[in-house]
Amino acid sequence: MGELTYLLVEEIFYHFLAVIGLIANLMTILILSRGSCGLCSCTGRYLMSMAVADFLVIILCVIMNYLGSLHFPISFLHHYNVCSLNSIVNAAVVDSSVWLTVAFTIDRFIAICCPKWKVRYCTEKTAAWVILTICTVSFLRNIPRYFTYEPDYLRGPFPFCRLRKLCTNVPWAIYLCLCTVLTPLIPYVSILFLNALTVRHILVASRIRKTLRSQSNDGKQSDPEMENRRRSIILLFAISGNFIILWMTKVVVFVLEEMLLELNFMNAMIHVGDMLMYLNSCTNTCIYALTQAKFRDEIKRVVSYPINLLLKIIK
């Protein structure tokens, strides 16, 4: 009974995630493409690329991979060639989503803590090259996944996908371990480290700036630069903190597996880790809405437009 309840909860979660994820990411892409949220060009590029990557994660990993396999146990998705390509693309979009979050964190770290590098690195052109490089490398490094599968002619009317026995050998084990280290272990540690450095810089800079301003104007006037920096910091910490929380279970599972621990709840942790990982692909819209006033205004316009159009047609 417990197992059936868990499967039902998982099925409901992925259906809910598919609907909310599609709507949220499409709305985010539409709003950011208009460029009316008051964000600098490079930040807008990173947020747009993250929204597109998250949108692809929802379509390919959640809808096609999980829900497609659930509702259509015998379909073209289980064909050997499709399954092999699917494994590459699914891993590539997840890797891209993760590393784009890292790139955004680095961009904001440089903008806040390294003003000398800001002019050179925090530009729209650099952001475009970084995004293109991340997406290309993410795809190329997952190509070996194609060869981890082989055709199975005994399960149905066409060659089904089956994991090769070679995957238990040392080279494949090393490759799969490296993939997990690259995503999400290194990004997870990198974001934690960069946020720690950012917090340290902010505390020191704020203390110095408050002292200087209190000496010049008794601290009565507002500080526009600190207000702009505060909004940028809130957005950075919200996105990176969301990533840290939702990927924590996956990181813990990886560490436990590397310690060769066989715990009774490991299987449940793996499933929960996957659910939280995919949830990360539809939460950024909520973060933008909570932290950016102009983004909230754009959401109201997007939502109200079809309603107003419908009312005009009725009248």
Rank of each mutant, 00 (worst) to 15 (best):
M275Y: 06
T136G: 13
F254S: 07
M269S: 04
F160W: 15
A289H: 07
L22M: 06
L310K: 05
I233M: 14
K294C: 00
L140S: 07
I23R: 08
C135T: 10
I174H: 06
L70Y: 12
T283V: 04
P224M: 03
L256M: 03
P159H: 00
Y288E: 04
V93M: 10
I112V: 03
L263M: 05
A91N: 14
V137E: 03
T133W: 10
I31V: 09
T28G: 07
G68M: 02
M275E: 01
F104S: 00
K116D: 15
D107S: 15
E124C: 10
M259F: 13
I208Y: 00
V102A: 01
S84Y: 08
R108S: 01
Y153H: 13
L276I: 01
F295T: 02
I174M: 07
E225D: 04
C286D: 11
C114W: 15
M64D: 06
N81S: 15
V98F: 03
P187M: 05
V119P: 09
P144F: 11
I233W: 11
I313N: 10
C179S: 13
S206L: 07
W172C: 11
F265K: 09
H15V: 14
I244M: 09
S41R: 12
T198K: 03
H78G: 04
F243Q: 04
H71T: 04
W117T: 11
N217H: 08
L17G: 08
E298A: 11
Y175T: 11
I314M: 13
I12Q: 00
M1P: 01
A24H: 11
M259P: 02
P306R: 00
N308D: 05
L8V: 12
L178Q: 06
K220Y: 14
F55V: 07
H201Q: 12
S138H: 05
V9T: 13
S87K: 15
D274W: 15
M50Y: 03
H15G: 06
I29A: 02
Y121M: 14
S97M: 04
Y288T: 02
R209Y: 10
L176I: 07
I287P: 06
F139E: 02
V255M: 15
L67N: 08
F109I: 00
